[in-house]
Design a protein around this nucleic acid. Sequence first.
DNA 1: ATTTGTGCAAATCGTTTGCATCTGA
DNA 2: TCAGATGCAAACGATTTGCACAAAT
Lengths: 148, 148
Amino acid sequence: MASPVSIPTRLGWPGQQEADLRIHNAKLKLTRPRIALARLLFSKGDRHFCAEQLHEEVLASGVEMSLATVYNTLRSFCEAGIIRVLPIGGKPAYFDTDVSDHQHFYIEGKADFINTGRLRVSDLPELPAGMEVVKVDIVIRLKPSPKA
Amino acid sequence: MASPVSIPTRLGWPGQQEADLRIHNAKLKLTRPRIALARLLFSKGDRHFCAEQLHEEVLASGVEMSLATVYNTLRSFCEAGIIRVLPIGGKPAYFDTDVSDHQHFYIEGKADFINTGRLRVSDLPELPAGMEVVKVDIVIRLKPSPKA
DNA sequence: ATTTGTGCAAATCGTTTGCATCTGA
DNA sequence: TCAGATGCAAACGATTTGCACAAAT
């Protein structure tokens, strides 16, 4: 029996196809950079990262790739819905491999994100007529509290 | 009796010092670009705008000023706390002259912001130890609902 | 075959900075 | 007086794009 995804043997398969299945399920072609990045992103659990970090990681893993390609690949992953951009509009964009409905604490300055789980908003006024909610972004910004 | 702010007569004062008082109260020097921008921003109520829009407006009002100066001035207004940046991390930053505790509906695509008033978040887990909340940013993204 | 991606240099574009000069307090 | 601002050209830095080439289905 062939596995559901035909794997190009020349890429040297180590075993865990989990990451590769995600690419396939997202209806994206199984290409070298996508495979390399997906393995870094999806082999451990939830990850928060920016493009440059990931670029360094992928280079360190022995796969050559320009930063532009990392950006392009991350964009295709976002469009496919297998990762998302975190709603902290800062200069380097941060991404999240967890695309479930959840929000974050964010430690100001550091790129440190802590999942708050699903939150609820109350006291919401009526929506403007003819509109519907696409998404609710919440960021709870934290700082170290001065010790008493 | 002199008014609390000594007004440089050469600037040609039309009357309403409201905007200028805000600059003064923010402990900023009353300078030509600050006065011109503050008047555009604070003479009517709540305003949502980006730097480029405001630049066009100020030029149209007959005051010469480069876009860089608009940016620099807006930055000083933000630091002084008399305006704030809206938490929709997009490319042109949007600003709000209403610095009170409130959140927004945001119509995707258009730069259209609707004040939701003060919202409350529930189901919030405990804060990480030693941290305190600086600010809570909420953006409720809307789109036109397909008519039935 | 033919679409879909790669790969990267160069372009883009909002925003910041450097610095000589000016000015409000 | 003189700290603090202006004013703008040039720098910046994250992201996108253009396009010739390569690879997946």
